[in-house]
Design a protein around this nucleic acid. Structure first.
Lengths: 162, 162
DNA sequence: ACGCTTAACTTGACCGATTCCAGAAAAGCC
DNA sequence: GGCTTTTCTGGAATCGGTCAAGTTAAGCGT
């Protein structure tokens, strides 16, 4: 967990002005990796009082463009952000509750960057999403075999920032 | 391009009732791989006259659950569907215009299915999205070096079903 | 410190994709 | 052919995200 001073340095290093909302957003994402925009807005307001959602959207956009944050958006989920950047890791997403976990690259450094055939595209990133069940949901499903489980509960009561 | 008869058989094989909207949706997706929901609605209406968007949403959902369609949704894009299923291929998405192309799996059959560490998750699918520039946009960017290109034109005037 | 310039922030309306709901219609099965 | 179940219709509501115009404040030169 970086200190405010480190966060301030990071912003300056990226040639971004140092503002309270930016610091708060960076802090929030550090504290809750994979949080969705709404959770981030709530965290920021906890610390700063009222801040417009527009500001948070703008800040997330600016920080993402500057490479300080990474945006991920698995199918049927809203946008999520994380502060681990530039280390080529991937994500596992639970089909039932939407929980997200980090995994390091399957085969080493950046090998997934080479598809069998690039169709003439200039590729700069390979993003991998593993789909499956998180330990909790796998367990739950096993026990309630006969209760039909909901298949699209991506917005469950569970904290999205798992 | 499958015939109506083949499509009907496919539906029955999946234990789905054979309805005109379903046939029309399957046809549309076969004709326009990676089409977004809106294009699919338009295609369907071209063939059948007025059909409610709700019906198309329901049909897409049913066909996807039955495994006849696959849904993809790259970050900042709306849902897209394709009829190539169960052959473990991946996608290249253009950061500028959003065009999508297919690529076969980088390393063989289903090897990307094994992450370095599964965090206790039960994984059933690995989805890979390569990000970059399509040949068109790469060329355009190169020529207009000094014109600022739009960075988020994911809904351009370009046919999304490329 | 002072003022200028430019980028960031606020407010509030707006939009498009998706979902919800209740009733009408049609498919599959006896 | 009639019954049951699923699908389809139409319309409203929701929700994540964006736009636009004006205000505020950071960073920078003097």
């Amino acid at each position: 967990m970086p200190t405010s001073l480190e966060i301030e340095r990071t912003l300056r290093a990226a040639e971004l002005r140092v503002t309270r909302p930016r610091i708060a957003v960076l802090n929030a994402v550090h504290r809750h990796p994979h949080a969705d925009t709404n959770s981030i807005i709530e965290s920021v307001r906890l610390g700063l009082g009222e801040v417009s959602h527009q500001t948070v959207y703008d800040v997330l956009e600016a920080l993402t463009n500057a490479g300080l944050l990474r945006r991920i958006q698995p199918s049927r989920s809203t946008a999520r952000y994380e502060a681990r950047v530039a280390d080529n890791h991937h994500h596992i997403v639970c089909r039932l509750c939407g929980a997200v976990a980090d995994v390091d690259c399957a085969v080493g450094d950046a090998p997934c960057l080479t598809p069998s055939e690039d169709r003439g595209y200039t590729i700069d990133e390979a993003e991998v999403i593993y789909w499956g069940l998180c330990p909790d949901c796998a367990g739950r499903r096993h026990h309630h075999q006969h209760h039909h489980q909901q298949h699209h509960a991506h917005r469950s009561r569970k904290d999205p920032s798992v």
